[in-house]
């Protein structure tokens, strides 16, 4: 039953993505690519790319995209509901505790342990994405991609410009080079 699977997979992603930002990335990859096989690594990388250029958190974006692909509009709604259900319950419980006791001790402990682990998990997922990005569709290392990556990384480390500009320009450069016949 695809709807139940969508709900359950994105429920787990929602339950464990502490700390915002890219934290959901390794969880989505694990569920959607490794466990369920709903997206290929290429499609997953494309969803992450799309997420960088559209509004909304990456986990909601992935839920809507994968849900729609696997189960149409209903699938999209169910996957998104699964994704926001755990945070909804937990956030309201915390708000209730907060207004009553003004203390969130256990939560602080959980976060203390999770923060460094989350960095490591993002690094691990980022590494998988990087390796994927540097290989062309034919399965060989793309020197064009290596050069583009190094330039992009250096620019964003030094200049802190808007990531969307880096991503957009990288895309345009690839199309231009591709059309000129440079092997990608």
């Amino acid at each position: 039953m695809i709807y139940l699977q969508l709900f359950w997979s994105f429920f787990q992603i929602g339950l464990f993505s502490f700390g915002g930002g890219y934290v959901a990335l390794p969880l989505i990859q694990e569920q959607v690519v490794n466990i369920r096989g709903w997206l290929t690594m290429q499609e997953f990388a494309d969803v992450v790319t799309i997420s960088q250029m559209t509004p909304g958190p990456i986990s909601i974006n992935a839920a809507s995209f994968v849900g729609a692909k696997m189960g149409g509009i209903l699938g999209s709604v169910i996957a998104t509901l699964g994704n926001v259900f755990p945070p909804f319950v937990i956030v309201i419980t915390l708000a209730f505790i907060y207004y009553r006791y003004k203390s969130l001790k256990v939560m602080q402990g959980i976060l203390y342990g999770l923060r460094p682990a989350v960095v490591a998990l993002i690094a691990s997922a980022g590494l998988t994405m990087l390796i994927h990005a540097l290989y062309s569709t034919t399965g060989t290392l793309s020197w064009f991609a290596v050069v583009l990556f190094v330039i992009g990384f250096v620019i964003i480390r030094i200049k802190k410009i808007n990531p969307i500009i880096i991503i957009g320009v990288s895309g345009v450069v690839a199309v231009a080079m591709g059309l000129l016949g440079v092997p990608l």
């Binding site: 494309d46 992450v48 960088q52 994405m129 062309s136 990556f149 990384f153």
Partner: peptide, 23 residues
């Protein structure tokens, strides 16, 4: 094919952005 080239390049950009965040 044009779409694939575009996303190939943008994927490289995303990898750079994520690595920057990780660092």
């Amino acid at each position: 094919p044009i779409f694939q080239m575009l996303f190939f390049g943008m994927g490289v950009g995303v990898a750079a952005v994520i690595l920057d965040a990780v660092v």
